[in-house]
Amino acid sequence: MPHARQPEPQGGKRHGVARVLSKLGACSRSQAEAAVRAGRVMVDGRVVHDPEYPVEAERQRLSLDGVAVAAAQRIYLALNKPRGVVVSAADERGRGTVYDLLRDAGLPWLGPVGRLDKASEGLLLLSNDSVWAAGITEPSTHLDKTYHVQVAGRPDAAVLAAMLAGVREGDDLLKARRVELLRAGEKNAWMEVVLDEGRNRHIRRLLAALGFEVLRLVRVAIGPLQLGELAKGQWRHLDPAEVAPLKRH
């Protein structure tokens, strides 16, 4: 039997309750939707079941599992993601996730700002400021992401030029904004690759199309923010001077 529709609140600008819970930093959007459908969310003392039920966050009382929800303190973290760790709150295969690295930190819910696949490593941002996160991940901002990439083989100048020109794969044009050969050995080489957009497995697909296997892929910078000396598996808070330049994007 469908739930009776609750009367909609009157007043100012309203958004769906699941979106508001996410914006307030209580949980992710998908977690909020599940909680609402399960009857775990109340608005002004009434249980709601529709994730799109409109609320005005500034005027109405929201609670999740009986605990009042208010705007959480904005938190911005940089984490050095190890290889083999999944960027997910939970993994159906039981693999370790980045949230295991934060388990005992006493932090509120934080969402990843962009992704790194399981085999990739390096700089990952997490925050409960969804507006700030969207400004970083939105493709139209063209924020540079810098990677150090080890490949099997020794790419020459023609390969680097092809990476800049781009390779068409289906509907995607895969290309680098900048690329530089850092060092080369007998069997492999390291390159610095800069992207200003990020498609799924972008660098791996681009290099595979040119005949090169990626051995390691490490993100070392997002815009002006550097991974620096942050140890693998460790995290730190960003200071306001680091947050602000990314917010401008």
Results as ranks from 00 to 15, higher is better:
18 A>Q: 02
4 A>C: 06
41 V>A: 06
23 K>F: 00
47 V>W: 10
27 C>I: 00
31 Q>K: 11
8 E>P: 09
11 G>W: 05
28 S>P: 04
34 A>P: 07
36 V>I: 08
7 P>Q: 14
40 R>G: 03
4 A>D: 14
8 E>H: 14
11 G>V: 08
10 Q>G: 06
5 R>C: 12
21 L>A: 02
49 H>D: 13
47 V>Q: 10
16 G>Y: 03
31 Q>I: 02
7 P>D: 09
31 Q>V: 04
18 A>V: 02
6 Q>Y: 09
41 V>M: 05
34 A>C: 03
36 V>W: 07
25 G>Q: 04
11 G>A: 10
35 A>I: 01
25 G>M: 04
20 V>W: 09
27 C>L: 05
19 R>C: 00
37 R>G: 08
46 R>K: 15
20 V>F: 10
16 G>D: 04
49 H>I: 11
7 P>G: 14
37 R>Y: 03
12 G>A: 12
30 S>L: 10
7 P>S: 14
13 K>L: 11
20 V>S: 07
7 P>V: 14
18 A>W: 06
43 V>F: 11
10 Q>I: 08
25 G>D: 01
48 V>H: 08
9 P>G: 13
19 R>E: 08
41 V>R: 09
5 R>A: 15
31 Q>S: 10
41 V>L: 05
25 G>N: 03
42 M>A: 12
19 R>H: 08
16 G>R: 11
6 Q>T: 07
49 H>G: 12
38 A>D: 13
17 V>G: 10
33 E>K: 07
34 A>G: 03
49 H>F: 15
48 V>P: 12
25 G>Y: 07
48 V>W: 10
16 G>C: 05
46 R>M: 11
42 M>F: 01
22 S>C: 12
31 Q>D: 13
47 V>I: 13
22 S>R: 00
9 P>H: 08
29 R>F: 12
41 V>F: 04
11 G>S: 11
27 C>E: 05
18 A>M: 03
8 E>S: 13
24 L>I: 00
44 D>K: 00
23 K>A: 03
6 Q>A: 14
43 V>D: 13
30 S>F: 06
8 E>F: 10
28 S>L: 04
45 G>F: 07
29 R>D: 12
45 G>C: 08
27 C>T: 01
18 A>I: 06
47 V>S: 10
34 A>N: 05
17 V>Y: 05
48 V>A: 09
9 P>C: 12
46 R>C: 06
22 S>K: 01
41 V>I: 11
31 Q>C: 02
20 V>K: 00
20 V>E: 12
37 R>Q: 15
16 G>S: 09
10 Q>L: 11
30 S>G: 00
41 V>E: 04
45 G>P: 11
49 H>Y: 15
44 D>M: 01
8 E>I: 15
20 V>M: 08
39 G>V: 11
33 E>C: 01
27 C>H: 01
16 G>V: 04
19 R>G: 00
48 V>D: 07
39 G>W: 12
42 M>C: 14
10 Q>S: 14
10 Q>V: 13
13 K>D: 07
14 R>Y: 02
15 H>D: 14
40 R>H: 09
35 A>S: 04
